[in-house]
C-alpha cells in the first residue's frame, strides 16, 4: 500500500519535529510513505470562518496531490475531520478521497492494527483529547455519552515503555484554540487554555500530548508565558521516542 503523508500547514511551518516523527514512525512500521511536496492546507481555517465557498482552489490542490495514494495519513484530527466532512472538489471526489484519509492514531489502530511499539518515554504525560479527533473522528470515547470506554491514542501511548499517563479532572474539555476563535475571542480562548493547562499541572504532567498540534501550540503559548517547564509534544513524537 502507498501512503501519502499530509502535513497540516502550521505543523509544516512551525512544528516540523511532529511531522518528522510521523514520517519516521510510519517508516519504522514498514509503510511506504511519500510526502507530496506541493501540498499546502486542508482549507479548514477558511471554512470554519464561514468562507467555505473560497476553499475550491485549496481543495482541488489537495485532491490533485493525494488522488494517487491508497491512504492519506495526517498527524491531525482536526484537519482529517474537516477533509472527511467538508472537502470536495468540483468533480465530486467524495467517492475517491475522503474515505481513505486517516488521522495518524486512527491509521495505526484501524489499518496497521499496531499491537506494540518499540518506544520508550519514561515520563508523566497528560493526554489532551483534541475535540475534533475525539468527537468527530471518534478516536476516544466521549464523557457525555453512556457508552463503553476506549481510546485509540490512549491505547497506543500505553504501549510506550515507562510512560505514566496522568488522570485529569475534566477528561475531554476543549482547550479553547478553535481556529480563528483563538484570536477573535481571545479572552475566552486563553481562559479555556489556562484551565486545561492548570488541570495537567495539578496532576503532575511533565509533558502534554495530543493528536492535534494546534491545541498543543495554544497550550504551549500559555505554558511558556507562565514560565513553566512543562513541554508539549505531538503524540507522534512520543510514539516514535527512544
Amino acid at each position: 500500500m502507498k501512503v501519502g503523508l499530509f502535513i497540516p500547514c502550521y505543523v509544516d511551518q512551525f512544528y516540523p519535529g511532529a511531522a518528522i516523527a510521523t514520517l519516521q514512525l510510519l517508516e519504522k512500521l514498514g509503510v511506504d510513505v511519500t510526502y507530496p511536496p506541493n501540498q499546502t492546507c486542508c482549507g479548514q481555517p477558511m471554512a470554519n470562518s464561514g468562507f467555505e465557498h473560497l476553499t475550491g482552489g485549496c481543495n482541488d490542490l489537495f485532491i490533485k496531490n493525494f488522488a494517487g495514494f491508497d491512504y492519506v495519513v495526517a498527524p491531525s484530527g482536526s484537519c482529517v475531520l474537516h477533509i472527511k466532512e467538508h472537502l470536495h472538489g468540483d468533480a465530486d471526489p467524495q467517492a475517491t478521497i475522503n474515505h481513505k484519509v486517516y488521522e495518524l492514531t486512527e491509521f495505526l489502530t484501524d489499518v496497521l492494527k499496531v499491537k506494540s511499539l518499540p518506544a520508550k518515554f519514561p515520563h508523566k504525560v497528560g493526554m489532551h483529547q483534541s475535540c475534533h479527533g475525539q468527537r468527530g473522528l471518534h478516536l476516544s470515547q466521549m464523557t457525555e455519552l453512556v457508552a463503553p470506554e476506549y481510546s485509540k491514542p490512549g491505547s497506543l501511548l500505553n504501549m510506550v515503555e515507562g510512560i505514566e499517563l496522568i488522570p485529569l479532572n475534566r477528561k475531554d474539555e476543549c482547550c479553547g484554540f478553535g481556529g480563528t476563535f483563538c484570536v477573535a475571542e481571545e479572552s475566552v480562548s486563553v481562559k479555556m487554555g489556562k484551565d486545561r493547562v492548570a488541570d495537567h499541572l495539578e496532576h503532575g504532567a511533565e509533558f502534554i500530548t495530543g493528536v492535534d498540534m494546534s491545541c498543543l501550540m495554544h497550550m504551549e503559548g500559555i505554558l511558556n508565558r507562565q514560565g513553566s517547564k512543562v513541554k508539549v509534544l505531538h503524540i507522534a513524537e512520543i510514539l516514535n521516542a527512544g
Binding site: V11, F14, Y35, A184, E186, V190, G221
Partner: peptide, 26 residues
C-alpha cells in the same frame, strides 16, 4: 497581535518540514 496578549508565539524552526524532507528524503 491578539495571540500575543496572554500567550507566547511558537518558536521558529530552522526549516519547515517540506524543506527538511527535500534535503533528507527526496
Amino acid at each position: 497581535n491578539p495571540w500575543f496578549k496572554q500567550r507566547d508565539m511558537p518558536e521558529t524552526p530552522e526549516q519547515s518540514f517540506g524543506e527538511w524532507y527535500n534535503k533528507n528524503r527526496k
